[in-house]
Design a protein around this nucleic acid. Sequence first.
RNA 1: GCCCUUGUAGCUCAGGGGAUAGAGCAUCCGCCUCCUAAGCGGAGGGUCGCAGGUUCGAUUCCUGCCAAGGGCACCA
Length: 592
Amino acid sequence: MKEHLQELLATALKRLFADAGVEHAATIQLDPTKDAKFGDFQSNLALQLAKPLGKPPRMIAEALVKMLPDSTRVARIEIAGPGFINFFLAPAAFQAVVAEIIEQGEDYGCDRSGNKGRIMVEFVSANPTGPMHVGHGRGAAYGDSISKLLAATGWQVWREYYINDAGRQVDILALSVWVRYLELCGENVPLPQRAYPAEYIRKTAQVLHSEHGDGLRFPAATVLDDLPQEPIPGPADSEQEKAAAKTGQETYMDALIVRAKTLLGERYELIRKAALTDQLAAIRKTLADFNVEFDQWSSERELVDSGFVSTALTRLEQMNLTYEKDGALWMRTEQYGDEKDRVLIKADGSATYFCNDLAYHVNKLDRGYPTLMDVWGADHHGYIARVRAAIEALTQRKDALNVQLIQFVTLSSGRMGKRSGNFVTLQDLVDEAGTDATRFFYLTRSHDQHLEFDIDLARSQSNDNPVYYVQYAHARICRVFEQLVEKGGDWDPLTAKLTLHRLTNEHEKTLLTLLNRYPDMLERAASAYTPHTVVFFLKDLAEALHGYYNVHRFLVEDDPELQAARLALIAATGTVIRAGLKILGVSAPEKM
RNA sequence: GCCCUUGUAGCUCAGGGGAUAGAGCAUCCGCCUCCUAAGCGGAGGGUCGCAGGUUCGAUUCCUGCCAAGGGCACCA
């Protein structure tokens, strides 16, 4: 429809220029109007041309309108305000969308061709060292919805979770479990300051203890033999002293890890694996409860063990992208926009996180995904430049990596006020508020906006909870069709299509306008990577439905033609609500 | 110090260079004999952080300043 009007304007413009004997490159801008009194579409073309043509905009508008070709889809055209050209469409042009939606179902407005190519979306990728918190939840909701949105607008999407199971934090996790295990054996090894103190660590330790008895036990004196005292800063210490203590604690932690590996030998791997398995199982359960799925879970450790990381390093060397300095291997990221070059292999011979992560990205490219989307927490901002630089060096393309940063989440509630989101797990949130309310909440804000999550509101089963507003519209539509059957009536989509000209009142017009905008809205949301656009659209659609419902009856027994038309309209509305909610990962209940 | 994000109604936030800046919550007033009142209609509430610039037109784009949050490792 929009294209059609643009063509009309282009023709008029050509004629105008021919008449006046001038050339000017004007982009034909056409926008949906905000207010129905300005018609359905508006163009500011005449305003743009006022200066280059040296004539008042209203005069240009009049000339343009005169030159516009006739179209059956346009009811009338008005010139308004400073020189806007407002198009009022013929009702039939709007009504046709109902038939289209009934035919195409939930795929209406979608492009399932996959013509835009393959894209890999990596999201969540939370460290498997503890439960996911509400910040991860936001990334999960966003990543899942943007994937669905991209898949609905012409992309072939592959979703992945990168498991960071090779770094030091996993050793810390394993050690934490072991200390708790020793505790169960009756050994007094104090939990290091830098270890994970949480309850879930004990559970793994208990399972280990029941399965292996004292098989992993060593006397506390042996474990702590020769180890330095762990520094614990007092409250009166200066910032400097506290920082020094922290460094000391890290050193102590590392020494303890080495001790564990030495004493346990191959048995260390047993503990490591048990800890990882438990954490990953918890994460998988939470994500499943949250209605988030992945095509693949990729392990960092497997990437290392399979030799892929060294292969990737060799390739970087061959491309002359690396060099040695101070005993470390560096990558030349600075010449690709990073603020400095970065270390891949440390002087002690171990790989940096960046090294393995980069290899993982190389792996993604190798698997045939020219576009990589990474959904990261806002705290990873400083990390973008180096990965982007590295990917550009490898692909010679600036657009190969698409990073979406998700801003922080703070929790609030009437009783507790603001508090940090890191201390509430996503599992708790989903258990208490439910997947629908939680996901809807997350996606109601733009992802680059800090989010204040009102737990009490999400939890409330009352009309205050915004998710119900949209779901209720859907349930109401379903109820009407239920009533129809109860009354012994029937409704045939094929014949209903012939009745659409009866949809003429204001409420019907509003709904038709919104339904017509759905495809455009999807495309806009996808290309701007903003699932929240879908949320706001659905709220508008639900509002239009509720208003309609309140004023008009859909089951009009004395006018079968009108009834058929209205049922067609609300059936189409229901379909679009369902499709939209599906993109958000929210259910569309038939009863509430 | 440098980099990124944000600043819009009492609160939480939408807003695609356009006409009179919107929604939800909160406050106030109405609407169920009728397909679900988890709904609808109405009222009040604004220096779009501040100052410049670009433009016919700026909440929107650019620059500076102020404020909030985050980031600046041979950590992960």
